[in-house]
Amino acid sequence: MEKSIENIWREGFVESDALVAPKINNLYNQKSIHIIDKFKRMFKINLIAIVVFSFAFLFISFFVGIPITGIIFFVTLSALVVINKKLLNDLEKIDIGISSYQYLKAFNQWINKQISINKRFSKFLYPIIFMSLVLGFWFKDAEGEPLGERLVSKILTGFPETYLVFGIPAIGIVIALIIIGLLALFGGQIYKWDLKLVYGRIFKKLGELMTDIESLRS
């Protein structure tokens, strides 16, 4: 060999067509598939976590004496999982073979549908969870007597003038109704905060990608 490897290297790349970057048309497809796959994975894990939690909580609730809370939690969360599983099935139906722009558009539509359904569900979910906790502790056995009734007896001993509605202090009912009202009012917002916390980064990347592809199309 006559030339040094340094010279071969230097001279080899002097020719203009030695370093032609390949087209990266497929890059957007890869990126969109990557983002959506990541979302699907997280969504599935989330659903599995809810199922595991609802079973575990049901089990624990019987042990700690608040089965009503456990049962209501279980039923409500199961409904949430069923609804979201159906949504996930719709997501799986999006054809991966379409262009990245169409794929992302379809995914975006699915996200909006999913957010809208879960937002509506959250208006009921949080008040139901609150009520299940109240009922669970109200009927919890406290030395042969429901905890709620015991609490009312104590209140009546201290404040005999307390106004009762169906054996429950009216002030307690008012406070519970205010909390339920606030949870129903802000349920959708709480869901959006939750969503942002879990999927915020993915949505940001998705938004960037959509803007990017749209700028290329215009």
């Binding site: 071969i8 290297w9 080899g12």
Partner: peptide, 10 residues
Amino acid sequence: AFPNESLNLL
């Protein structure tokens, strides 16, 4: 392959 034969060998 690259257009330069020596580079290909390298």
